Simulated assay, not measured.
Amino acid sequence: MTDQTKPEKPVNPTVKAVLEYGPIVLFFAAYTLLKDRSFLVAGTEYSGFVAVTALFIPVLVVATLGMWKLTGHLSKMQIVTLGLVVVFGGMSIWFNDERFFKMKPTIIYLLFAGVLGFGLMRGQSYLESVLDSALPLEREGWMILTKRLALFFLALAIANEVIWRMMSTDAWVNFKTFGLPLGTIAFFMVQSGLFKRYGTSEEDADT
């Protein structure tokens, strides 16, 4: 699973942050405003959650296309995430059932964990092929990081299932908006020791 696409074009960090995190912030804001309302469309009543999902899908599509336009590149993770949002969000709207959209993070994280795990069984780090230029590590470091990230994705999938099935929609929205990003940041912060031990300089990476 190599990623032989051309390097990204430089982008203003603020613009990039808005495109990456803007859709989820808008989802949270819209849900907070509309969660207690219902909407009658063509004789069918939709909850505020489903209505917000219908708004979120085009916003994410526009943001992803904007990122591609500015950088000239989309990662496989971005493409897969967009596809699953469209599919599962569309199913929630079509069947008027919010459960499909709530399942989406589970599918995403199981897919990522499975792909990374498959690579590890083949003695490869697919993570290295995607992030090597941004995060130079020795091969052993990549294998350890890939194993840890696969387990982390698996834990996120389990957490998402527990939360959406056993807790309120408010709890799930908070988990999706704040828990997932903060958990990811915390994960990579915890890997600082690994980065120091197995990190390579740009000169070493070029030799």
Rank of each mutant, 00 (worst) to 15 (best):
K35H: 14
K35F: 14
R37L: 13
S38P: 00
S38T: 11
F39A: 06
L40W: 11
A42H: 07
A42E: 09
A42T: 14
T44H: 07
E45I: 06
E45M: 04
Y46E: 10
S47E: 02
G48T: 00
G48A: 07
F49H: 03
F49E: 07
V50H: 02
V50P: 00
V50M: 05
A51T: 08
A51P: 07
A54Q: 11
L55F: 08
F56G: 03
F56S: 06
I57D: 11
P58G: 08
P58A: 07
P58F: 11
V59Y: 04
L60S: 09
L60Y: 03
L60N: 01
V61E: 03
L65D: 05
L65P: 05
M67E: 00
M67K: 13
W68K: 13
T71R: 06
T71F: 00
H73Q: 13
L74S: 06
K76V: 14
K76S: 05
K76C: 05
M77H: 09
Q78Y: 00
Q78T: 05
Q78A: 07
I79M: 15
V80W: 10
T81M: 02
T81R: 01
L82P: 00
L82T: 00
G83E: 04
L84V: 08
V86T: 11
V87A: 06
V87Y: 00
V87H: 01
F88A: 07
G89A: 07
G89D: 03
G90Q: 11
S92P: 04
S92L: 14
W94P: 09
F95Y: 15
F95N: 06
N96F: 09
D97M: 09
D97A: 15
D97Q: 11
D97V: 14
E98S: 09
R99H: 12
R99A: 15
F100I: 10
F101M: 12
F101C: 01
K102E: 15
K102S: 15
K102C: 10
K102H: 14
K102W: 08
M103G: 12
P105C: 08
T106Y: 10
I107R: 05
I107Q: 15
